[in-house]
Design a protein around this nucleic acid. Structure first.
Lengths: 227, 227
DNA sequence: CTTCCAAAAAATGAATGCAAAATGACAGAG
DNA sequence: CTCTGTCATTTTGCATTCATTTTTTGGAAG
């Protein structure tokens, strides 16, 4: 009879996935990856066959996904893939900006030199992609940097919240593609320079502002290209 | 046969609660209000009788509550009320601080004079409670102000995220009671003066800093009194 | 008296069955 | 030809049932 409160390492990661958790992940990916159209009904029966399970665990997973905001449950009318209105997208971008601003602030408080060096390295990689006009590589690097800042904040609750919102907005990510807006690309690169500079100086409040505005500008670019 | 996409007012509020949503709210309150001890097992069977439902809807609600972070699901070992470690509390306070910082920033962008006047009024009320040393009234007013700022941000996603975290931390709220720390009380009051001042000047970035630090100080006070 | 093992008892996770509501089709009236 | 009211089919929501795992209890050995 071991005491459970002290040795519990604050739910480290996901060592042992319960059977139904696998289904949840699979279903989440299935929806996030766009296998279902926006606003489409989520066919219970078809998904049961698709994943070889009965309706009970599927419906449980659906409830969780609804709580996460990925789908919406209409009483007696089943589940629908949640459509993101332009207003929703605006809200999501702002909240992600707020969370990144927080992450930057916290990261300044506790980031190690090694972690910073790693982010700096990624930044230089990204700059090379920028010079080469390699959009794909740039995009990948960009995301890695933002994620690294969130990770450097050392706050699992923040990371989880951030990940949840990121999942919700992923379906609309295409519109954030700035391939057609070369000016924005250069601006974003300059903003990232400022981010790295503030992080180097551990200027939390300043970095917080920069990150929020960075996301704001990203949102504006996305809105301009999409709307 | 009306078209559902255009006239849908973005899920107005909660006009008709689906049957099982009522259960979810009831169960959430039941747990948040502390009817179950920290870390205690959630007795499925007992709750079924308590709410007069079968296990299926209860388990669905449990899954949602687990996604919200209120309880945790151990594979084949049922649900437990999630214990908040000091680390969890630290994280939650910081994330709430980040969200309030964001709320303040957004509020500065879009708050109306009427909304500001309302917050100002609440602030003066709170000051009166402070002068009278009316802890209960002060506390109530304080919370209303913070909620009003979040509301003034005009971001439903932010409000929902904030509410979710607030629910998770509510069980540990007692420790934030600053009754024994008169110095902190005065400091908090001064911080609120600064909050109102920055909001009046629509100084978003500044208000953002103040709000985050306000929550930080609140956390420190809570930690000092609790630990 | 303590410790360890085994079997019973309980609880969890998942599947199936059933009643109610919604969706769609079809026929008749205007 | 269009609109409307009724009926059959599908689907949802919940209860019940079944299999597997865990927990507890009882007893025997050390």
């Amino acid at each position: 009879m071991v005491d459970e409160s002290s040795p519990a390492p604050a739910v480290a990661a996901k060592p042992a996935a319960s059977l139904h958790e696998g289904l949840l992940v699979a279903l989440r990916d299935f929806i996030v990856e766009g296998n279902l159209a926006d606003g489409a009904r989520v066919p219970e029966r078809a998904l049961c066959e698709r994943f070889n399970i009965s309706r009970t665990p599927l419906r449980e997973a659906l409830k969780v996904l609804a709580a996460e905001g990925l789908i919406e449950l209409l009483p007696n009318r089943g589940a629908r893939v949640r459509e993101l209105s332009p207003e929703d997208v605006r809200e999501l971008f702002d909240v992600m900006g707020g969370l990144e601003a927080l992450a930057g602030r916290l990261a300044c408080e506790r980031i190690s030199e090694a972690e910073f060096a790693e982010i700096e390295r990624m930044h230089h990689d990204m700059y090379r992609f920028y010079l080469r006009r390699d959009m794909h590589g740039y995009f990948h690097c960009n995301q890695a940097i933002h994620l690294a800042i969130v990770a450097a904040a050392g706050n699992a609750t923040l990371a989880a919240t951030y990940a949840s919102l990121a999942g919700r907005i992923r379906r609309v990510r295409y519109s954030a593609n700035l391939a057609k807006d070369r000016d924005r690309w250069g601006e974003a690169m300059r903003e990232h320079e400022a981010i790295l500079d503030a992080l180097r100086r551990r200027a939390g409040s300043e970095l917080s502002d920069i990150l929020f505005l960075h996301l704001r500008n990203k949102r504006k670019a996305a809105q301009a290209s999409a709307g």
